[in-house]
């Protein structure tokens, strides 16, 4: 019984406690420099453990997941990041979201090749994120 518990629990602890950040940025038309810049901005936020940025034309959607321990600060982190990116690139239409739905959808968009489809999808997701009820 104890052995079983150990087998089940140890991987959980290992996964749960890993401080590795996974930051992925995708954008076919945007230049490499911008992508790297945004990636480093997200990476600077220590509380973020997964960040996925989708860039399509002027639209940028960044989905972040914060560490469960600071779950309550989720929206604060979200706002800070949004502000930073907006200041740096006022010409871009940015939305940073900590919503799990955004994370899920952006993960799928990473693989998408069709530029137009990505743009439409990003616009749709942004509308969804603003929905209140």
């Amino acid at each position: 019984m104890k052995k079983l518990a150990a087998i089940v629990l140890i991987p959980l602890f290992l996964i749960g406690c890993s401080s590795e950040q996974t930051i992925q940025v995708a954008g076919i038309t945007t230049d490499e420099e911008k992508r790297a810049e945004i990636e480093s901005l997200i990476r600077d936020k220590k509380d973020v453990y997964t960040g996925t940025a989708i860039m399509a034309e002027d639209e940028v959607l960044i989905a972040i997941q914060v560490n469960p321990w600071v779950g309550f600060k989720e929206q604060k982190v979200e706002k800070e990041l949004q502000k930073e990116i907006e200041e740096k690139y006022p010409e871009l239409n940015v939305l940073v979201s900590s919503d799990f739905k955004m994370h899920w959808e952006t993960q799928k968009l990473l693989e998408e090749e069709d530029e137009k489809k990505v743009t439409d999808e990003v616009k749709k997701l942004k509308d969804l994120a603003k929905e209140e009820t």
Binding site: D99, F100, K101, M102, W104, L128, E131, T133
Partner: peptide
């Protein structure tokens, strides 16, 4: 909640209800 978010257009905020 996850099912609603994955299969329908619900976000964290809206899936609650």
């Amino acid at each position: 909640t996850f099912l609603y978010m994955i299969f329908f257009d619900f976000t964290d905020k809206t899936a609650g209800n």
